[in-house]
Amino acid sequence: MNIFRLTGDLSHLAAIIILLLKIWKTRSCAGISGKSQILFALVFTSRYLDLLTSFISLYNTTMKVIYIGCAYATVYLIYAKFKATYDGNHDTFRVEFLVVPVGGLAFLVNHDFSPLEILWTFSIYLESVAILPQLFMISKTGEAETITTHYLFFLGLYRALYLINWIWRFYFEGFFDMIAIVAGVVQTILYCDFFYLYVTKGEGRSQLSIPT
């Protein structure tokens, strides 16, 4: 464990908690893409099945349980409890165009052709594009609540910190995982446009307006 990975995990945890609290406190999921949240729940489910098979550390297990729990709680709030506030008309990204190619790629490019490894690879590839429905929805509505932009900022920051973590681990441990690194680079690049807007327009505006 290094400081970059730890702050990355904490940034990820912050994002997940921010979103869950935003929906719970405002009792509304307006502006939130339920599709992205379903994809994230799928990412955590397919990646953390090793919870059942191996124990790495208390930290590792605790964080995985929290991630999975919050992901499903968020999906539940969006599609069940506060369904009336779900903006389905703007959450129209065709997620099958993400899941099918990612599923195929996981079978073609992986470290080991075992079920757990294929699922892990699938979760890595899926995570890199899981935010697209959310970014697409914001581009359609042309705006995002400030709290949603903070959610996206921490979510994007976490994988950027993981990239530094992988540079650190390659340099000090000779460890690198090309699949995770390439997917992580793609994932972080997808946020660049948002990061620019977040930094340049974050201040002084109540709503982040993305030029459609």
């Binding site: 990820h12 790495i56 590792n60 470290h111 993981y162 973590n165 460890f175 995982d177």
Partner: peptide, 10 residues
């Protein structure tokens, strides 16, 4: 070996 350890990451 790369993938013996990558499962320690979240």
């Amino acid at each position: 070996e790369t993938d013996s350890k990558h499962k320690d990451e979240l």
